[in-house]
Amino acid sequence: MKCLDKNILIDHVNNDLSARKKKQVITHLSTCEKCRIELEKWRKVLQTTEQFVAGDIAAHSVPPHAHITRRFEKLSKKEKILQPEQGRWLHAWARPIIVTACAIVATLMLYFFSQRTSPITPADYYIIDNGFNTEAVTLNEDTIEQLESYYLREIYENDELRNDILYGDWQEYDDQLEYLDENEMENLLQELYGEKIT
């Protein structure tokens, strides 16, 4: 077996070898005087180095570090004064998400209000509810005309409604009849009652 490398000898002195390798080294050392001498040299070098380092560390007292802790405390307080919300504020990665969400909400609100450029009050709508369908109609000249004809047709075609107007409390249908002008109302009632209502 060839002589041991310095790396092996150093590791052997430092007890850094695996059990198997250590056994091989010991076996070789038992038969090789040259390596034994070399090992002793290394043992002495490493021992002296350790002694030197230990003395060197002891010779240099470590400066106190309490002032560093105090400095951190001061910095920490200063940061809290300068940035009171820093600890509670969102992480940087969340900011773009929040900004985007705000932009979307703002756009939706703008769109919603832009749809209401001409303010509409509930009085501008008329709800048609014939018992089967419910429909909201925006009132304008055309729709009022349609509505009048719708109700006239309803009155003529719907027996129940006609009976209500004839025999019930027709005032209940005032909302519907108000779209008829005087002449139309007169004609309707005359037709229904067979006489003019004064």
Partner: peptide, 17 residues
């Protein structure tokens, strides 16, 4: 470590057998 050993040997600072 080799450098340290060489220097110590060359300058005879350690007594080696």
């Amino acid at each position: 470590m080799q450098k340290i050993k060489n220097e110590l040997e060359q300058n005879q600072l350690l007594e080696f057998q």
